[in-house]
């Protein structure tokens, strides 16, 4: 079911944890709420679930306003970072809990538990206690438990934050597959951009309680709406400069700039993979300082003739790398960049 929040606000004393945030999630979508820790993402999720009251704004589930509904009546599946499994209950009892408290008959409970155990790949473990499971298994039980009463939407709060890197990778792929199978409207909170981009259809970026940008992962990577987003979703080169005749200069570099008036002070942001560096025998535009192989990529740190540092990245086998070594002269080409107006 679709989720719609409108002008949501939450204050803790003088501090606005959520500041006038609005967004919509279509029925069946898988969306990530991405942002730095303490930025208000979890608070938004908890307000949607009814675990926290808002100070303003509205929450709609499937077109129906739910602000007045108690958390127990919202039919929202919630998965907590540290699983929050009931440790005195078996896996089966945990999954059946929502059905039990809602008065579902025993045989139906059992049928549903079996079905969900199959879905999350834990068949035969229904008699185990949570402490007998691994972190990844516990999180799957938590998800099965949240899905059992057939919630209208699924909310996950840093769902893979408490497991180690390898299991996290696996759980991400698994969640994506599960979603492609079930099409439950899902909103998950994460501070890890890789997680957001590898799992979600769409990403909503929240910083300091405000919505910075929302869109598909590629759009956010290529067209960051604000300087914050540009810096948050990957490494960047940043230069403060001034627009002249539709272009800016950074040392020997000249980059065309659109949408900004003449003489405007702007901040130019360039991603390391949007830069071409290549060896030249003449003066060039920069001098290579370091060439660092990092896994399947190579990182080149150089200094523009003008003193500004510049960082670029290439695939390891790139032909551009031929002859590039510390101390050599480099030609520079910018394939993509964005400029943001500086506050005057």
């Amino acid at each position: 079911m679709a989720i719609r929040i409108d002008k949501l606000t939450k204050r803790f004393g003088d501090f606005a944890a959520v500041d006038n945030v609005s967004f919509e999630i279509a029925d069946g979508e898988l969306v990530a709420l991405l942002g730095p820790s303490g930025g208000g993402k979890s608070t938004i999720l908890r307000i949607i679930a009814g675990l926290e009251d808002s100070d303003g704004g509205t929450v709609e589930l499937g077109g129906e306003r739910v602000d007045h509904l108690h958390a127990r009546a919202r039919q929202v599946g919630f998965v907590f970072q540290h699983y929050a499994l009931f440790k005195h209950m078996t896996v089966g009892e945990n999954i059946a809990f929502g059905l039990k408290v809602q008065g579902v008959e025993r045989p139906e409970q059992r049928r549903r538990v079996e079905e969900l155990l199959g879905l999350v790949g834990l068949k035969g473990l229904d008699g185990r206690f949570p402490h007998q499971l691994s972190g990844g298994q516990r999180q799957r039980v938590a998800l099965a438990r949240a899905l059992a009463p057939q919630p209208r939407v699924l909310l996950l709060d840093e769902p893979f934050g408490a497991v180690d890197a390898k299991v996290r990778e696996e759980l991400r792929r698994w969640l994506r597959r599960l979603h492609d199978e079930l099409h439950a409207t899902t909103l998950f909170v994460t501070h890890d951009q890789e997680e957001a981009f590898s799992v979600a259809d769409r990403v909503v970026i929240i910083n300091k309680g405000r919505l910075e940008q929302q869109g598909p992962p590629l759009e956010i990577l290529d067209e960051p709406a604000t300087e914050f987003v540009a810096r948050f979703v990957g490494e960047v080169n940043v230069y403060d400069t001034v627009v002249r005749d539709g272009r800016v200069t950074v040392g020997p570099l000249e980059v065309p700039v659109h949408h900004h008036p003449d003489k405007a002070a702007v901040r130019l942001v360039i991603r390391p993979y949007d830069i071409k560096l290549f060896r030249v025998e003449d003066q060039g535009m920069a001098t290579a300082d370091r060439v660092l192989p990092i896994g399947d990529r190579v990182r080149i740190e150089a200094t523009l003739h003008g003193g500004q540092p510049i960082v670029a990245q290439f695939p390891r086998r790139s032909s551009l790398l031929r002859g590039v070594e510390a101390g050599c002269r480099l030609g520079v080409e910018i394939t993509h960049s964005r400029a943001y107006l500086l506050p005057s």
Binding site: A49, G50, L51, H70, A71, R72, A73, R74, Q75, V76, G77, F78, F80, H82, A84, L85, F86, H88, F97, G98, V101, Q102, A142, R145, A146, A148, P149
Partner: peptide, 25 residues
Amino acid sequence: TTDEEAAVTLGASAWQTFWNVTLPN
């Protein structure tokens, strides 16, 4: 409080939450 919050989002009433989750804890 997360165990209790989990129970509530699953549809448990205050009494059900206390009896099934808080008391065993």
